[in-house]
């Protein structure tokens, strides 16, 4: 791997991150005369003189007493120290603490979803590719159309209604004590699995079909490549051809998709989490929105952008590892 390429990519990523940070800082300030407006307490019975003093104290407390440029520098400085801001919730918890609390729970859903989607998707996709034209393949094509057209949250609502509320196969909504009573015991893990089952099923149906489709297409496309035909002509068995040559090369677009979906891992489950009351980053963001908790909202946005950038960077580097033509000959731009 070309060292220069790596360094260039990293620098570029940092540059984009700086732009995103700046956008993040300015968005809540657009069109607002006094950004501290939201933080002032009501005047109640206070005289105007007293109230002005209170307003000054509030501004000082939340850091609005300095110029915007200084606030921006302070913001950047805080970022360097890993401080994404302080939430407006009672008790003023730090944004990073809140994210750290909720992130693992979102990852439980997303990573399991990705794992199941890729696993079953690839299994089904290769099977369909190998039996092209037969019923498995046809079913895949139809399923693909259906799952693209049906939003995932609609499926989630249906599953919630039937499997949750009506037939009670799974809990209809997440047990509120799930997070607090978690103690790594087998029973607790089982309870998490039981509560997570419906959201994961709802999310993964679309994912399975999608990965199956990609795999099928990749496999078919690659199967027609010269080197595969050569291998088969050489008399290598089907299985060897399949797994040693076809699948490994067909993995490239899958890797790309995976990399791209890293940021979707966290942001994408917002609606599903809301439907099932799952205590993850999605519901955290929605409650921040409902309570106008701007530091928390912008902190989460910055975090998600950072994750997306990181995902892109890693994907690029992995890609250049897997496919040397990228840096040597073809070039990206």
């Amino acid at each position: 791997m070309n060292k220069g390429y790596v360094i260039k990519r990293i620098l570029y990523t940092l540059f984009i991150f700086l732009i995103v940070t700046t956008l993040n800082f300015f968005i809540p300030r657009i069109g607002v005369d006094d950004p501290a407006e939201r933080y002032y307490p009501p005047q109640g019975n206070m005289s105007d003189v007293e109230y002005n003093i209170i307003k000054d104290l509030t501004r000082k407390q939340y850091g609005f007493d300095v110029s915007t440029w200084q606030q921006y520098l302070r913001y950047l400085n805080n970022l360097l120290h890993g401080d994404l801001g302080t939430s407006l919730q009672a008790g003023s918890p730090k944004v990073v603490d809140l994210i750290a609390d909720r992130l693992p729970w979102t990852l439980v859903l997303s990573v399991t979803n990705m794992f199941i989607s890729v696993l079953f998707g690839m299994l089904y996709g290769t099977y369909a590719a190998w039996h092209r034209g037969k019923w498995a393949d046809k079913l895949l094509m139809n399923a693909s159309t259906v799952t693209t057209a049906l939003p995932a949250f609609f499926l989630a609502l249906l599953f919630s209604l039937y499997m949750g509320f009506e037939w009670e196969w799974f809990p209809a909504y997440t047990d509120p004590s799930l997070v607090s009573s978690f103690d790594w015991s087998l029973e607790a893990i089982g309870r998490v699995a039981k509560n997570a089952a419906l959201p994961i099923i709802a999310m993964s149906i679309g994912g399975i079909v999608s990965y199956a489709q990609s795999t099928r297409n990749s496999v078919i496309a690659v199967s027609n490549e010269d080197y595969v035909v050569t291998a088969r002509a050489k008399g290598l068995g089907t299985k060897t051809v399949m797994y040693k040559h076809v699948l490994r090369n067909a993995l490239l677009p899958i890797v790309t998709s995976l990399g791209m979906s890293v940021s979707g891992l966290i942001g994408g489950a917002v609606v599903i989490e809301q439907i099932f009351n799952w205590n993850g980053m999605g519901t955290l963001f929605l409650t921040a929105n409902n309570t106008n908790d701007y530091p928390l909202m912008m902190g989460i946005m910055l975090f998600l952008s950072g994750v997306a950038l990181l995902g892109n960077l890693i994907t690029d580097l992995c890609y250049s590892l897997l496919d040397p033509r990228v840096t040597v000959g073809g070039g990206r731009r």
């Binding site: 995103v20 968005i27 994408g268 929105n289 909202m297 912008m298 997306a308």
Partner: peptide, 17 residues
């Protein structure tokens, strides 16, 4: 830059503002 910013959270923020 556009591709990195998560669209759903940004939509939520902008409709809020």
């Amino acid at each position: 830059v556009m591709l990195v910013i998560p669209t759903l959270p940004l939509t939520i923020v902008l409709t809020n503002l």
